[in-house]
């Protein structure tokens, strides 16, 4: 059966919100939980030790826990923070940048790669597998066709490298040195007053015709539509995907997880779309189309 994971929180939430979120997550039918700050080095509601404590608690609840690292590394301070996670061997580490790869490899710590790692072909996977890669995420802009081929080639090479697919949530699309939230408030990045805390789902960026294009979230830009591959789970099961990643949101996440859990068990009836939240759905990347597109999904069959 497909495994379910909760990706790292991409937004900036208060300390208490984070603790509450994971207290709830501990009870949910997810197999893996990714913990840590992956977007902005200024977000420090939780210190590295807080994340490690949380990781131990969730592990005690039977969850597989992975520590995630920053996507854009810009300074020595960022590297110090990175080393804190890449130099322990209690938990697996998710590398979201080549800096993390280097530190993990040097310390002989096994690692997984997140969706921002530039992995587009089997040759790349082979190089990383030799150095400790245990599982990898498909870049969000790739779809079914490339993934199917990659999985096939890995099998031909006799490599056991489970694949994870970002399957639900706002897609992380870009990281910048500039903070777009601070820019909106006319604040310098270094003195941003942590305005992201006021936007637990980011800020909508619309065209002048009110089309939802992107979501601004500090230095990162996410999709304006919510990626939803619930209907594609049967596809993934057939082609040998290991894990389905759901990206945390601060409201109604439990309902999302439970729905995906039902679907992976083949329990959802054909006519029961997931309509929980107020953003248009998209799935274009999976079908090799512009990411924002919505392609009519297939009907559900029983028994994934």
């Amino acid at each position: 059966m497909l495994k379910l994971s909760l990706g790292p929180i991409l937004w900036f939430w208060s300390r208490q919100t984070v603790f509450d979120f994971y207290a709830n997550a501990a009870e949910l039918p997810v197999d893996t939980i990714y913990l840590g700050e992956v977007v902005c080095s200024r977000r420090r509601e939780l210190k590295p030790d807080d994340w490690l404590d949380l990781a131990r608690d969730l592990k005690a609840c039977g969850k597989n826990v992975v520590l995630s690292t920053l996507t854009l590394i810009e300074s020595e301070a960022d590297l110090r923070r990175l080393r804190r996670f890449c130099e322990q061997d209690e938990f697996l580490v998710e590398a979201n940048d080549q800096s993390a790869l280097q530190v993990a490899i040097r310390n002989r710590i096994p690692f997984v790669t997140g969706p921002s790692m530039n992995i587009y072909n089997t040759a790349t996977l082979k190089i990383l597998a030799k150095q400790g890669l245990k599982e990898w995420n498909l870049p969000v802009e790739l779809g079914k066709e490339a993934l199917e081929q990659l999985i096939k080639e890995l099998q031909q090479e006799g490599l056991d490298l489970p694949a994870e697919v970002f399957s639900w949530g706002f897609l992380p699309l870009a990281w910048s040195s500039r903070c777009f939230t601070a820019r909106h408030y006319n604040l310098p990045k270094d003195n941003c007053e942590f305005r992201c805390l006021q936007h637990p789902d980011g800020m909508e960026l619309r065209s002048r015709e009110s089309q939802e294009l992107f979501r601004i979230n500090g230095i990162s830009t996410l999709s304006g539509s919510r990626y939803d591959l619930m209907r594609e789970l049967p596809d993934m099961g057939r082609m040998g995907v290991s894990t389905v990643r759901l990206s945390p949101e601060h409201l109604r996440m439990e309902a999302v997880v439970r729905r995906f859990d039902q679907v992976r068990r083949g329990e959802l009836p054909a006519t029961d779309p997931l309509q929980l939240v107020e953003a248009p759905p998209c799935n274009g990347y999976w079908y090799g189309r512009p990411g924002m597109d919505l392609v009519a999904g297939q009907q559900f069959k029983t028994g994934l």
């Binding site: 996507t71 854009l72 921002s116 530039n118 587009y120 870049p139 969000v140 802009e141 790739l142 897609l171 699309l173 870009a174 990281w175 910048s176 040195s177 500039r178 294009l213 992107f214 830009t221 999709s223 274009g284 990347y285 090799g288 189309r289 512009p290 990411g291 924002m292």
Partner: peptide
Amino acid sequence: CIMAEGRCYLSSYLTDESPNT
């Protein structure tokens, strides 16, 4: 280019082509 290069998928999100692909 103000996004970290090699990791910007904004273009393939709106069209079907990005710098990477």
